[in-house]
Design a protein around this nucleic acid. Structure first.
Lengths: 216, 216
DNA sequence: GCCGAACCGTAACGTACGGTACGTTTCTTG
DNA sequence: CAAGAAACGTACCGTACGTTACGGTTCGGC
């Protein structure tokens, strides 16, 4: 898979029934608790449904995992909106907000669990999982941030050639080593306060790199 | 585990025999090919040894995994050296070199495989693996880079309060989204040329943020 | 109230794999 | 060269788990 051939945009079309959503929620909670070694019997027990139903609805274990990840994905889907024109203060505030949200997401239990499962799966089976997680994490953030960056550029507050490159720099300044450390079981101490501080620092650094000079 | 309670500094003391190293190399190759779902029988077959020997030497499956990761770790161990005084050009060259090396490492098959296995393991068993991988990746890089940053600061070419924070910024500027995308099965197109370019860009940006102003 | 479909709970099957046992072979050492 | 240790190959055991099968139950529609 290349970065061009992206994920399947979550479940493309049909939706889940209420009961099915409950089952998927149970699977999700179990995934947070047990990681990749959750068991079909475990999900059935937790969701108070029969294994036969699981197989009928989701095909096999992989199908259940994919559906679970897509289900979580569909819960946080956000439509990108073009902010039009912005002043420098609201731009800063906006960037800082995105940074805070992002750090909060990648530090959350569900995000860590989902990424763990997806990483575990990336090597073997049909690696849909990795693509889905990526599409809903890193790529979703990019889609939401690009309009903001473009607006900042149009308003003359940001200066960059390629929005993608600028975004990746922002991504790096915000995330740094946090995600990999969390996935590997380390705890970089991300309290609410630390997140706010990190977001502010990252935004400040980003503006230092890409902000149009005031005296120009 | 916190970032204070670090890993076990590779195998602390005793060493492996040549034959044992061969076996560990076989396990390592198999890990690159099969990820976490490598099997004891598979390693035995690949290494042309008996399963009984594996259990005698490494205790159990987890022991084998840990030993394999430590073995790979011991192969790339580098001692940090204080560069003393540096001029700005050699500092830049040095940073760029570290950035190139780091990108090359995290894009390598073995690094991806090791990180995948460690991430998969982080949730369940005794998570030594994550700590070891972290200790040999991200923390090793920090240990090698800190003296360089400090030297740059002493020489008046860098300005920062906390070396750790400065390092993490450098880490973020270099790695950006590369590692997580690779772990999730995406391929951000890291050719030799792209790596060199990325390293140069990251270094340039880092110096823009932390380089002492020339006109000051 | 009856019928069929969907679903629950559970039992059963097959297999993969971690771990152990054991007879045979190879290597070391005196 | 002989004796013992180490290691090889393989067969074996137990269990966990994915998957299937089946009898009982609920429920919407006629």
């Amino acid at each position: 898979m290349t970065s061009e051939a992206r994920a399947g945009e979550a479940k493309g079309g049909e939706e889940w029934t209420a009961r099915q959503r409950d089952v998927l929620d149970a699977a999700l909670r179990l995934m947070v608790e047990e990681g990749d070694n959750l068991t079909m019997a475990g999900v059935a027990r937790r969701a108070s449904c029969s294994k036969e139903t699981l197989y009928k609805w989701f095909g096999d274990r992989d199908g259940l995992l994919v559906a679970t990840v897509q289900w979580q994905a569909s819960k946080v889907r956000v439509v990108p909106v073009d902010p039009g024109r912005v002043d420098v203060d609201s731009l800063t505030e906006s960037l800082e907000g995105y940074a805070r949200d992002w750090l909060k997401v990648i530090a959350s239990d569900t995000s860590i669990a989902l990424n763990r499962v997806a990483v575990s799966h990336a090597g073997s089976g049909k690696d849909n999982l990795g693509a889905i997680v990526l599409e809903n994490g890193r790529f979703a953030l990019a889609k939401r941030l690009k309009p903001v960056l473009d607006a900042g550029k149009r308003a003359g507050h940001l200066a960059f050639e390629d929005a993608e490159t600028a975004f990746r720099t922002f991504f790096g300044l915000v995330g740094r080593d946090v995600q990999i450390r969390l996935l590997l079981g380390d705890w970089p101490g991300l309290t609410e306060a630390a997140i706010a501080e990190d977001a502010a620092r990252a935004t400040r650094q980003f503006l230092a790199l890409y902000g149009a000079r005031k005296e120009q």
